[in-house]
Simulated scan of single mutants.
Amino acid sequence: MKIKSVTLHFIAMDLLTPFVTSYGTVKKREMILMEAENTDGVVGWGEVVAFSTPWYTEETIQTCFHMLNQFLIPALFKQAIEHPGDIRAIFAPIKRNHMAKAAIDCAVWDMFSKKEGKSLATLIGGTRERIEAGVVIGIDQIPNMLAHIERHLKEGYKRFKVKIKPGYDYELIRQIRKEYPSIPLMADANSAYTLKDIEHLKCLDEFRLMMIEQPLGSDDIVDHATLQRECDTPICLDESIVSYDDARKAIELGSCQIINIKIGRVGGLTEAKRIHDLCLDQEVDLWVGGMLESGVSRAHNIALASLPGFTIPGDISASARYWERDVIIPEVMVEDGYIHVPSGCGIGFDIDRDFLRDITYETRTYVNPHLG
């Protein structure tokens, strides 16, 4: 399979409500949608899920564009692809830049599954026809966060994640547990704490949380092992896990009991599947994280979450949770707390071309110069 062309669609979408974490607030979401076409005319879609500023990882929309433009797309054009797993070897000489790589990896997986006449979920080994949906509540006034939980509970969501930060944690969780003593609840710290906070974090054990996600440094697995030994609450690693080797080392050190996989963070579906297989073998629980994505990435997340090792509902909400209108047709829907895993070829969704034109502020098309 040879790639004939790649088109980058630079888009911007307004969130229905600002999303607040310990890092800051996101109101408008910039993304790059990647449209790749092979020489047989089969099209696959991927998405750059980096943010406009480097608050989550070192990558941004602009750094990803630079890498795609100067290095990754030219490397992609030079070689024939027998299987999407080949992308990992093609890009191996290029260090990190996982979110830029993931956009191509996912587009090729979508293209390949369409070429094979199979759904993406089936092709990567998915076993579920539907997945449980979880929801994230950003930092807000406690009454507002309680109201969000109530609304999403009525919508059937199966797991609730709340963002926390120093000074806005214990009392927040206490009041949530007072109102909702039995809901599946977890807290996401986005690296806001240090080991100096260990006694304070241990106080959260009383609330029977499913997990505390990434409480310590975004690149740490050593201090998390110390924290996990002291806390009864399971530690989940997010930002620290950007590769199979990171996951292997974290498991060996006892740094966590749970791992969150974000396709963009680990460089694509190929690496995500490798981490899944490792954790399944080591009996480490998994769930799929979210990045405030468009429906393109959401579709890839749904396929990933259909794999057997994902035992915890992921951050995969309905399109309407974040967007007035999504770029896919049909939009992702949550019914009684579940999302249907598409059975159609590829990601199982069509692109809303009219809406895509409305939200695109720049387009770049690259044609493979190595084709006769």
Rank of each mutant, 00 (worst) to 15 (best):
H9N: 05
N260A: 04
Q62Y: 08
Q228L: 06
G24I: 00
A50L: 04
T63R: 06
A103T: 11
I329M: 03
P166W: 02
L123F: 08
L123Y: 05
I81Y: 00
E331D: 13
A100G: 10
M211N: 09
V108Y: 04
F207R: 10
V288I: 07
I212P: 02
T25M: 08
A102L: 06
I94F: 14
F77V: 10
I124H: 02
Q70S: 03
L356C: 11
T226L: 13
T311R: 05
M211Q: 09
W55D: 11
K196T: 15
V49Q: 03
N368Y: 13
Q141M: 15
A50R: 07
L253H: 05
D326N: 12
Y361K: 01
A75H: 11
I87K: 12
L16C: 02
I32E: 12
G337T: 11
G290E: 00
H148W: 14
I241N: 13
A187M: 08
I351K: 02
H9K: 04
N144R: 12
V6W: 02
E179P: 14
V49H: 02
E155A: 15
S243A: 13
T60A: 06
P215A: 10
H152C: 12
T122H: 14
G125V: 02
R159D: 10
I328T: 09
F91P: 09
V327D: 11
S306I: 00
L153Q: 14
K249M: 14
I275F: 00
D238W: 05
C203V: 10
Q228Y: 05
L269H: 05
S306V: 00
L209W: 04
K2I: 06
V136M: 01
Y170D: 14
L195E: 15
G346V: 04
D220M: 11
G138Y: 09
A107W: 01
E324V: 10
T363F: 06
V42D: 07
F310A: 03
A12C: 08
Y157A: 08
G117R: 00
T60V: 04
F349G: 07
L76T: 11
